[in-house]
Design a protein around this nucleic acid. Structure first.
Lengths: 204, 204
DNA sequence: GTTGTTATTGAGTGATTGTTCAAGTATATT
DNA sequence: AATATACTTGAACAATCACTCAATAACAAC
């Protein structure tokens, strides 16, 4: 009885992620969206309700992808710290040479810095997403401590904040127009910061 | 013969900095500017040319203030490393309790993340400003090395990038809605990162 | 093929965007 | 006081903004 939609909702959302990630919320107009998602205003509003709710869905999808990537590294790498480093490396260098991401910087962080007091729904969603990302890092660090990769007297909650600062800083820095070969050593320096939380080599 | 302008250009620019810093470029409309600077469109355009060039002037003014603050700390603090730490502390905690800044995050970084390919004049200005800020940090680090505060085998250019990552990360993190007492220990952790570049205590 | 249901279309909504400009006003000099 | 200069005003501009809706088209069930 019903008529099947012509467009693929997931594909459309992916396009929305690319657009919003690249241009930000305010600088992305509905004309951009119509063109990029190949949908006319009527369909767009029937499917997503409003520009704001479309953005929220896109942001959630972006975050889900990021969580999924972290999970992948956790399963793939031998230790928790290796997983964290591999995750960081992918975030900062990911897609170099191959398919470039629409922006180096994190879409959630871009939104955090773009949004003001009167975009309240976006603000709170961003804070929630950052909170759960921090929690995921904290749990990963707890495993690293349990495995003896990190000193047992380390406060995982506190270190998780330091790690998030590094991610935000690195990815934002990577958004600059840089000469090649800058990011690798920068990443190495951050890795050695993480290594400084390892247990001291036994002096026995 | 001429008629003196009623408004104070510097004051108007300061207001523009506050507005643009808080709301970003795209989300700040001319209506906002007219109201906040208490100027009608004619005067605004006679004085600043366009929204974009006003933004560029505001951004330059913001950067000049930041450089000035760094210079102040350099003159005030006993050592180069102390100056860097005091600068960082002010950027992250500055104005707490007292007059709050319009945003925790750096206006230049906010612009870096907001601007896309087709805002070219803003893009290149942002990159230039970040470049000179990095250079200033590098020169400060060179002094720290010369004074023996930092190990002589340290690459100041490379460390300057690490420091800029810390600044970007900390100030962006501080933009989140956080419980009190989070930022102090975070700052301490970053300080101890800087301290790890100090010379090793002599084993003699 | 007919019917029922739902997606798609695209012109059109009022509001707001950045910007211009002719008219009016205030001041320093003479 | 008259004049010259330049700043201020605010209405109006075309363009764009996010969004709506009546008309049309397409498909599934019968």
């Amino acid at each position: 009885m019903p008529r099947a939609p012509k467009y693929d909702r997931q594909e459309a959302l992916d396009q929305a992620v690319r657009l919003f990630w690249a241009r930000g919320y305010h600088a992305t107009s509905l004309k951009h969206l119509e063109q990029s998602l190949n949908m006319r205003p009527g369909s767009l509003y029937a499917a997503f309700g409003s520009k704001e709710s479309l953005f929220l869905e896109a942001l959630d999808r972006y975050a889900a992808t990021m969580f999924h990537e972290l999970q992948g590294h956790i399963e793939r790498e031998p230790t928790a710290l290796d997983a964290l480093k591999a995750f960081l490396r992918e975030l900062v260098l990911g897609g170099t040479v191959g398919t470039e991401p629409p922006a180096r910087a994190c879409m959630i962080v871009k939104t955090l810095l773009e949004v003001s007091e009167d975009d309240e729904p976006l603000r709170s969603r961003v804070n929630a997403l950052l909170g759960s990302m921090e929690l995921a890092i904290e749990q990963l660090l707890k495993r690293a401590i349990a495995q003896g990769e990190i000193r047992p007297d380390t406060d995982p909650e506190r270190l998780a904040r330091v790690v998030q600062v590094q991610i935000m800083g690195l990815r934002t820095y990577a958004q600059r127009e840089l000469n090649a070969g800058i990011l690798e050593p920068l990443l190495a320096d951050v890795f050695s910061l993480l290594d400084s939380y390892r247990p001291l080599p036994s002096t026995a």
